[in-house]
Structure formats: C-alpha cells, structure tokens
Write a protein that binds this DNA or RNA. Sequence first.
RNA 1: GCGGUAUUGGUGAAGUUUGGUUAACACACCGGAUUGUGGUUCCGGCACGCGUGGGUUCGAGUCCCACAUACCGCCCCA
Length: 428
Amino acid sequence: MRYQRPKGTADILPGKSSHWQYIENVAREVFSKYRFEEIRTPLFENFEVFSRTSGDTSDIVTKEMYDFKDKGDRHISLRPEGTAGVVRAFVENKLYGPEVQKPFKTYYMGQMYRYERPQSGRLREFHQIGVEAFGSDEPALDVEVIAMGMDLFKHFGIHDMRLAINTLGDKPSRDAYRQALIDYLEPHFDELSEDSQVRLHKNPLRVLDSKDEQDQKFVADAPSILDYLTDDAKAHFEQVKSLLTALGIEFDVDSTMVRGLDYYNHTIFEVMVNSKALGHGYTTVCAGGRYNGLVEELGGPEVSGVGFGLGMERLLLLMEATGVSFPEEHHLDAYVVGIGDEADAATLQVVQALRQQNFSADRDYLARKPKAQFKTADRLNAAYTLTLGEAELAAQTIHVKNMASGNEVSAPITDVLNDFTKVTENID
RNA sequence: GCGGUAUUGGUGAAGUUUGGUUAACACACCGGAUUGUGGUUCCGGCACGCGUGGGUUCGAGUCCCACAUACCGCCCCA
C-alpha cells in the first residue's frame, strides 16, 4: 500500500458511481423544466476571484482556500464554491448583454475544494450542485429559485424538509443593523466567547451564528434585522413571503440566520432536514440567497443574482439514510459460455453481435472451465446463457437458455448473430 | 488550526489487558468431487505479515516515540 489518495479525497467506485449519476440526472431533469442551462467553468481561478467575492474576513478565504502559485507565479486557487466562478464567466462573456434573455438562468455541478479537516460528509475535494439566476430584482425570481430547490429535493425522495428564510436587507438596512448589533453587543464584550469577540468587529452578523452557549444568551435578546429594514427591503421580503405562500410552500422566518459568505443580501434561505445521518436535529442540506452587487464586484454592470448550492456528499448520506432506492442499472442480457479453444473466436463474434443488437453481453476471459463459466453467468444474473462448444460449432448452432424459466433451445448461430430477439421469443 | 479514538488478508474481524515463537473464526474468491449448465453439501487453496519509520527487549501485532491516514468533536460549513 505504497500510495494513498490525498487527505480528504475519495474514490467513487463502480457500484457507487451510479448513485452519483442518478443524482446528476435527476438534477438535470428538474433544472431543465425550470429552463436553467448548464455552465462549466474552470476548477481553478485567480485567487482574487474568490477573495473579492467571499469577503476578506470569511473563513473560506482566511483559512480554507486551496491556493498556490503556478509556474508563471500566478496566484491560483481551486474553487471553494461555485458562484464566484460563474459570476466571473458571466461578466467575462458579457452574458448581461442585450441579446441574452433575462433572467439568465444557469446551473453547475462538480468538484469544489476547501483546505480543512475532513470529516464524514465533508472532504477537501467535494461536489456541489448549484444554480444561479442573473438579471432580475423581482422577488418572483427568489421564489422560483427556492421552489426549484424544494422541488429538487422531492425528486430526490426527500420529503421531511423545512424551509428557513431570512433577509439581510439592502446596504442601508444592513449598515443600520450592523451598527445596532455592535451597540448591543459591545457592553457585553468581555462576556462573549473569544471567537465572537473577533467576529464583533470583523463581521458582527456572524455572532448570531455562534453555537457558544454564553453567546446564545445574548443572541436571544439581540435586535432583529427585520426591525432595521428599509421600506424597499421590507417590501421585497414581504413579496417573497407572499409568493411562497401562493405556491403553498411552508417556511419559517429565522431572523438570526446569516451567511458565511459576505456577498449575500436580501433573501437568504436554507433547506433543512431532520436526519441522524447529518448530525442531530435539523441540519442544512441546501443554502442560497440573493447577491445583488456581486456582478459589479467582479467588474460587471449592475446586475443582480440569486442562487443556491447543495453538497452532494451530504445529499448522498441523507438519501442513503432515508432509504431512497437508487435504480441499479448494470443489467446483463446474455452471457456466452465458450468451451474449448476452437470456440474462442466464435464466442467473441456472438458477444460482439449481441452488443451490436443493443444487448449487454459478456463472456469469460480467463480461459475457465465450463462449470466455472456457468456459475459466473448465474452470479452475474444473466437473462440468457448461450453455450458454444465443439458440438455446436460442428452443427453451426448455439445453445440458448432462459435463466429465469430454465427453458432451453438450440438455434442456428446465424439467427443469434442476426436477430437475437427472435431466438428468445421461442423460449420465453 | 485544536482535542479524542482508531489502523491486522479481497471483506468482517479475534489476538493487544498479563510481550514468547502455527495470526483464530467467518464471508467472499479460486480449484476439485468420472468429460458441458445455475442451488446445496463435501474437500482443498487463499496474510513471509499486523498503516509507515525508528526505538526498547533474548524475543513486539502486542510496550515507547515520530509520521501518515480514517472516524468523531471543536472551528467553520456543503
């Protein structure tokens, strides 16, 4: 065992990879109904793309970025999340241009990288599915994105979800609230946890997210963002709520909910599930929100955006714990048993001909005895076992057995080569 | 970045407390039981080695140290 995979990475092996494909396929289907199209952006970007957008004080930038200098001395970072790269591509390719329909709706799925201590469901190389919609300030777009997220989880077979929403307001709302929060917490500075003392000046909203018991006491009585919203921000949030209600989507407003990334404003939301697989109580499986201003931050025009992301590893854990059944497609239509060296070529011809006729077919490649081959056909769950030996070669026939019924028939080899379906009709 | 636990064949693992010379048992896999049909049963095969590297000892899977990796918790988050 000389080489091991790098810390925090995983091999997705046959058997398991079909689960990933299933999730990806379901996501593509759902997204296409909402008319979101796929975008593929690089796995790495200039470091600044992420540091600008995520916020210099965010943990992602300060300690979790997987960055390095390339041979041209460029400061590169593996993408820690999907939004920044998509926004960069949106700006660079001028997708805000007049010829592109608004809103521009896109999705992505793929690897993300964060340099952190791996745990179950949290790796250094992990996978996210995410969506972004650019070019509309209308609350209806926020709601479409949220509704699509909920819809997606239903298609994954997850039903006991809870939708939590909040608003971070616009810039004036946030500034006012930020000041109110500092004013409230400052007198208790010495009683706050060490982490929160640091947060208070860097990003006071994050104190609300503290799990420290002592901190939580203060958080409970802290002023609410909802009391500091401007009229515009308030109207936006009210409309989001009423549209969600119109769609019959239940939600809880959690005024202490915040974001680890700095670029969010207005609506933010999380889809939560109560599953032991991901820890105790409700845990978040999907998070998103509105990020007006992010496009400008990366040099684009004033175009707003809203989106969400979900972690595939966590989703997989959740689906497995929930007992979601994945379609198992590794079906074998025919296994061809060849007996003796003389049958080698003919066996290969039959296998290949069956594949040409769109059947999945396999044979023995280990020169094993008939007994072992028949056992293998059974173990692989072959629908039909064909046998080709000396006697058959002499008569130019092939033996075909329906493994489910046990019925057998001898047919001309040419029949199998030309129309296997017809041959099987005689024994089904 | 911090703390805890763990690491023995393809797999599940016993053995580590009391260091002692054949690494148990089971599953899977492979071969065989009078020539070419699936199950069962029976027989046989399957770790020159106990994460890696050092050390202690007459002797180490068992003790000590370092490192690696995994899992759990913290931080944070998906």
